[in-house]
Lab assay of single mutants.
Amino acid sequence: VGDQVLEIVPSNEEQIKNLLQLEAQEHLQLDFWKSPTTPGETAHVRVPFVNVQAVKVFLESQGIAYSIMIED
């Protein structure tokens, strides 16, 4: 199991704000291929294997929908 690319769908401005804060966490080494800008629009982010669980827990705790787009 390696890195994953998640497709994330924020449903409101609050969730977009939370994702932008997540993007700013440099220690997570997230690679946003497509940043969140509009509710209902997908964002794509590559998550290093060591941080996959932490990111998924965060998304679930914020009620942000996501799916695994690419499993490496």
Rank of each mutant, 00 (worst) to 15 (best):
Q4K: 07
T37K: 07
L59I: 02
V55S: 00
A65I: 10
P10W: 04
N18T: 14
K17T: 08
A24P: 02
S67V: 08
K56C: 09
V47K: 00
I8P: 01
A54S: 07
Q25M: 14
Q29V: 06
V45S: 01
S11Y: 10
S35L: 15
M69N: 04
T38F: 11
A43T: 13
V45N: 01
A65M: 12
I16V: 11
E13K: 08
Q25G: 05
A24W: 13
L59C: 03
L22F: 09
Q4G: 03
R46P: 01
Q53K: 10
P48E: 03
S61L: 11
N12A: 02
N12D: 10
I16H: 03
T42I: 12
Q53H: 13
D72A: 13
P48D: 04
T38M: 11
L22Y: 05
L20I: 10
G63T: 03
A43K: 02
L20K: 11
V52C: 05
D3C: 15
E71T: 10
K34P: 05
E26G: 14
L6H: 00
K34F: 05
L28D: 02
V1P: 13
W33D: 07
H44C: 15
P10T: 04
I64L: 04
N51W: 14
S61D: 07
R46V: 06
T38G: 07
Y66M: 01
E23M: 15
T42P: 15
E60D: 09
E23K: 15
V47Q: 00
P48T: 04
S11M: 14
F32Y: 05
L19H: 00
M69H: 08
K34I: 09
H44N: 06
G2T: 09
V5G: 03
P48W: 04
A54D: 06
P39L: 06
L6Q: 01
F58P: 00
G40W: 07
P36F: 05
L22V: 03
L19E: 01
Q25H: 07
K34M: 05
Q4T: 14
V57F: 14
G2I: 08
E71L: 09
V5L: 09
I8H: 00
F58R: 02
R46N: 04
Q53N: 12
G2Y: 13
E14S: 08
G63N: 08
F49K: 08
E41M: 09
A24E: 09
G40E: 03
H44L: 15
L30S: 02
L20E: 06
E23R: 15
A65F: 14
I16G: 01
E26Y: 14
